[in-house]
Computed example of a mutant assay.
Amino acid sequence: MRKVVVYELVSLDGVAENPAAFFTDWDDAVDANLGAVIAAQDAVVLGRRSYDEWAEFWPGSDIEPFATFINGAAKYVATSTPLDREWSNTHVVDGDLVEFVRDLRDRPGAEIGVHASISVAQALLAAGMVDELRLVIAPAIAGTGKRLLDGLPTIRLQAVRGTTTPAGFLLVHYRVVA
C-alpha cells in the first residue's frame, strides 16, 4: 500500500496559510529536505485554491527541484467545479476525497504527497488517511492565518527525525501511529 505524506511549510505557531509571509530565508538544508520528500512521490493531492495558484506559477517555473517534480507528477484536485486552467497530468477527484485517496493508496505507485492544501491535509488527517507528516517549521510567528492542525481530533505521532537547519528552520518528520 502506498503512503500518504503531508508536507507543509508552517510558522512556529502552526500557521500554514501564505507561507511566503514567514519563509524569508531558505537554505540548502531545506532544499535537500524537499528533494528527499519529493523523490519518493509520484502523485500529489491538491485542493482547488492551491491548484489554481500553482497551475498559474509552476508550469513556467525553473525553481528546482520542485518544478520538474510537480510538472511531471500526477495531480489529483479536490474540487466540485471544473478547472479553469489546464496543467499536465491533472485529474479532478471524482466523488468523496477520503474514498478517492483510499482507492489511490491501493493502486501501484510511489508515495502520495499532500502539499500546500491545508483543507485537504486536515480532511485526510481527520479521516486517518495520512501515514506521515513532514513539516518545515519557520523560525517565525505568523500571528494570524489558517493553522494546519486546528480542529483535528487527537492523533498520535511517532517522531522519525528532527533537525535544525543553518537558517534555523526545524525539519520534523512524524509517523502517524494507528
Score class of each variant (00 low, 15 high):
residue 162 G to T: 05
residue 47 G to C: 12
residue 95 G to R: 12
residue 91 H to F: 08
residue 27 D to R: 03
residue 135 L to Y: 06
residue 90 T to E: 14
residue 52 D to A: 13
residue 77 V to H: 12
residue 122 Q to S: 02
residue 89 N to M: 05
residue 177 V to H: 13
residue 132 E to V: 00
residue 170 L to A: 11
residue 61 S to Q: 09
residue 79 T to V: 02
residue 7 Y to N: 13
residue 154 T to N: 08
residue 5 V to N: 01
residue 59 P to G: 07
residue 171 L to S: 08
residue 101 V to W: 02
residue 98 V to A: 10
residue 111 E to S: 15
residue 66 F to V: 04
residue 158 Q to M: 11
residue 46 L to M: 15
residue 120 V to Y: 02
residue 66 F to E: 00
residue 165 T to Y: 04
residue 28 D to V: 07
residue 49 R to H: 12
residue 30 V to W: 05
residue 89 N to F: 03
residue 110 A to S: 08
residue 5 V to S: 02
residue 108 P to L: 05
residue 24 T to C: 07
residue 148 L to Y: 09
residue 148 L to F: 12
residue 50 S to G: 09
residue 91 H to V: 06
residue 24 T to V: 14
residue 89 N to Y: 01
residue 2 R to S: 03
residue 158 Q to N: 10
residue 152 L to M: 08
residue 57 F to I: 12
residue 41 Q to G: 08
residue 123 A to E: 03
residue 43 A to M: 07
residue 163 T to M: 05
residue 170 L to D: 07
residue 29 A to N: 02
residue 32 A to I: 13
residue 67 A to I: 04
residue 40 A to T: 09
residue 138 A to V: 04
residue 19 P to W: 10
residue 158 Q to W: 06
residue 79 T to H: 10
residue 97 L to I: 08
residue 136 V to D: 04
residue 6 V to F: 03
residue 94 D to Q: 14
residue 70 I to E: 01
residue 17 E to V: 05
residue 35 G to N: 06
residue 175 R to I: 03
residue 139 P to A: 07
residue 99 E to S: 13
residue 28 D to I: 00
residue 10 V to T: 13
residue 119 S to N: 09
residue 2 R to Q: 06
residue 97 L to D: 07
residue 122 Q to F: 10
residue 144 T to H: 09
residue 135 L to C: 04
residue 137 I to F: 10
residue 100 F to S: 13
residue 100 F to A: 11
residue 85 R to F: 12
residue 54 W to S: 06
residue 93 V to N: 08
residue 41 Q to S: 13
residue 15 V to P: 05
residue 106 D to Q: 14
residue 83 L to M: 08
residue 91 H to S: 12
residue 123 A to Y: 01
residue 131 D to I: 03
residue 127 A to E: 06
residue 122 Q to N: 02
residue 116 A to L: 05
residue 121 A to H: 06
residue 71 N to W: 05
residue 129 M to P: 01
residue 103 D to S: 15
residue 58 W to M: 07
residue 138 A to K: 05
residue 168 G to K: 07
residue 15 V to G: 05
residue 9 L to T: 09
residue 164 T to S: 10
residue 142 A to M: 11
residue 26 W to Q: 05
residue 154 T to Y: 06
residue 15 V to E: 08
residue 47 G to Q: 10
residue 113 G to M: 04
residue 145 G to M: 14
residue 82 P to A: 09
residue 13 D to R: 03
residue 36 A to S: 13
residue 36 A to M: 06
residue 165 T to M: 04
residue 106 D to G: 00
residue 17 E to M: 10
residue 154 T to R: 11
residue 125 L to P: 02
residue 34 L to A: 14
residue 20 A to C: 01
